[in-house]
Design a protein around this nucleic acid. Structure first.
Length: 572
RNA sequence: CGGGGUGUGGCGCAGCUUGGUAGCGCGCCUGCUUUGGGAGCAGGAAGUCGGAGGUUCAAAUCCUCUCACCCCGACCA
């Protein structure tokens, strides 16, 4: 039993001015966290209690799945990172520092190097495999833009696991095991989530999944089918080609140059020509490994850079800057077009249909071309799926309709294969005595992010509505007149007996007025409030209130435990 | 990194245009009254006005530089 009066729970009446999202505001207001610097927070007692409960669930499920806990260092020498080339590749996001001897170190954003180094030194034989090691630890990433409190911090707590198997089929089994463990974890935490296919990298197939918590404020778009269980993230989601040339029999007029002074954006141009935006083509110039490419998409579509990068098999890909664009197209930005465009390949998204007339830029200031037809007026070297899915697209699995939601990534399971074991020469001897690379997988959970995601999904005007499995306390006992001995004594007795039954109890013993206690209790969001007032106590009753539903029940003292165990099951 | 914005007692904000030496609400402390949904009255503590420099008799206010934080974008295990 914890006494409220002794705990540091600095609640705030007003919304802090620098918080934007609900979860961020409520975490500050309910006294869970305080900011130290951008993307860096202190966890206060209530915040830490929630974190611990999330961690406990994670540990139980990881252990159950056969993983074992370790703790790797946050401080890592540059040497290991140089072996995998990531000392260079990781860029500015890596928090780097030097020790007193001017040796390079970093604060770990992830731990593939350290764990692979450990295993390469300690594991020699297939008999020692499989191994799945995990830790719950602070990670450091110098995010370009930290935001939304614990949602995207520069320092945060992550559970990361690394599996080592003797071959691919064993590794796939481990992957499946982790996938299931993750489902259990997020279910137990009480989150509404979906597992989606993610960018699968080297191995292909179903070797990477993200676990997304559905929330309006999510930073990622997730694509799912309204009919079947297909779900993928935006980068990954395939577009099925359905567009066909409209064969109306009408003859298409000759291409024509039109003066469009100042009309640059898709909206402006489509308004000018009085056509819908799907009759426009955007021409974007990308530089892929220093080579320019012109990429065409319809005005109502967006380029998917991940797809483009894959298609071009490019190491580096970026939109051409203004200068480059001008020198390559001989025209000003905003008026690029494919007609008579020389010196680069022209690639189009598959929804661009040959034989259909489009409005395109003329590579000339304030000029567009009307009735430009692929195959007649300009050449397209290749067609491919290069755009983002939109909400009326068709499911690649079942043909149903696609819908798009927003989500918060709370977990990611990933088949690594031998990428790191090869780079770091981490091998074991198989049954034939032959040297083999470990087949690895890695599995992350944003433990501190889960707290933010849970609040994002569970709140109302008055405050937080904790899922009961991760609530900082199970029950808050609120004596209305703490000065009256009978009331206070009853509150203490009830708290103790609940505590003895295994409930975590917060006793609201502050010398505050009823209204203050009620409002703070609603803010904190502990699932059950037991209100003890002089009036009802005299006749032997207390009030049990469920925070989420607001349901209140007058309960005889003797039946508190029973009532509690009865309702606790459906409080969530 | 580009664009926009904000820094004034613990929190939320006004004051800045038109310089005259800091104010409001909440919170905090003391006392009395009150006491089942953010009490009332009285008294009180608390601010180098983000920092540095400059202009001026005088700077929260004007000028220059700088730092921090927030939002949008680009970027991204």
């Amino acid at each position: 039993m914890m006494r409220y009066s002794r705990l540091l729970i600095p609640t705030l009446r007003d919304d802090p001015s620098d918080a934007e999202t609900v979860s961020h505001k409520l975490m500050l207001r309910a006294g869970l966290i305080r900011k130290v610097a951008a993307g860096v927070y202190s966890l206060l007692p209530l915040g830490l209690r929630v974190l611990s409960r999330v961690e406990k669930i994670v540990r139980e499920e990881m252990d159950h799945a056969g993983a074992q806990e370790i703790l790797l260092p946050a401080l890592q020498p540059s040497g290991l990172w140089e072996e995998t080339g990531r000392w260079q590749k990781y860029g500015k996001e890596l928090m780097r520092l030097k020790d007193r001897h001017q040796r390079d170190f970093c604060l770990g954003p992830t731990h593939e190097e350290v764990i692979t180094d450990l295993l390469r030194n300690e594991v020699r034989s297939y008999k020692q495999l499989p191994l799945n090691l995990y830790q719950i630890q602070t990670k450091f990433r110098d995010e370009i833009r930290p935001r939304f409190g614990l949602m995207r911090g520069r320092e945060f707590i992550m559970k990361d696991a690394y599996s080592f198997d003797a071959d691919l089929s064993e590794a796939e089994k481990t992957y499946e095991l982790m996938y299931k463990a993750y489902q259990n974890i997020f279910q137990r935490v009480g989150l509404d989530f979906r597992a989606v296919e993610a960018d699968s990298g080297l191995i292909g197939g179903s070797s990477s999944h993200e676990f997304m918590v559905l929330a309006q404020t999510g930073e990622d778009a997730i694509v799912s089918c309204q009919q079947c269980d297909y779900a993928a993230n935006m980068e990954q989601a395939e577009v099925v080609a359905t567009e066909t040339g409209l064969d109306t029999g009408e003859t298409i007029p000759q291409i024509e140059s039109v003066s469009t002074p100042g009309y640059q954006s898709v909206e402006d141009v489509s308004a000018f020509f009085k056509v819908s935006s799907d009759k426009l083509l955007k021409t974007l110039v990308f530089i892929a490994d220093e080579k320019p490419y012109a990429v065409l998409v319809r005005g109502d579509h967006e380029i998917n850079e991940v797809k483009l990068k894959k298609y071009l098999n490019a190491g580096e890909l970026a939109l051409a800057d203004k200068k480059t664009l001008i020198s390559v197209t001989n025209g000003p930005p905003g008026f690029s077009g494919p007609v008579a465009l020389k010196g680069m390949e022209i690639i189009a998204d598959q929804s661009v249909i040959p034989g259909v007339p489009y409005v395109v830029g003329a590579n000339q200031k304030d000029t567009h071309l009307q009735y430009a037809v692929a195959g007649r007026d300009f050449v397209v070297d290749h067609f491919s799926d290069l755009r983002n899915v939109v909400s009326d697209d068709v499911c690649p699995r079942c043909g149903g309709l696609i819908s798009i939601d927003r989500g918060i990534e709370v977990g990611h399971v990933f088949m690594l294969g031998t990428k790191y074991s090869e780079a770091m020469n981490a091998t074991f001897l198989d049954q034939q005595g032959k040297s083999q690379y470990f087949v690895m997988g890695c599995y992350g959970i944003g433990v501190s992010r889960i707290i933010a995601a849970a609040i994002e999904q569970n709140n109302d005007e008055k405050g937080i509505l904790w899922p009961r499995q991760i609530a900082p306390f199970d029950v808050e006992v609120i004596p209305m007149q703490e000065k009256k001995e009978a009331v206070m004594q009853a509150a203490i007795d009830i708290s103790k007996s609940l505590q003895n039954q295994g409930y975590n109890v917060l006793l609201e013993d502050r010398k505050e007025r009823a209204g203050v206690k009620f409002n703070d209790a609603d803010l904190l969001g502990i699932p059950i409030q037991i209100v003890i007032g002089e009036r009802d106590l005299k006749s032997g009753f207390v009030e049990i209130k469920q925070r989420k539903s607001g349901e209140k029940a007058l309960t005889p003292l003797a039946e508190i435990l029973e009532t509690l165990s009865k309702i606790y099951g459906n409080v969530v």
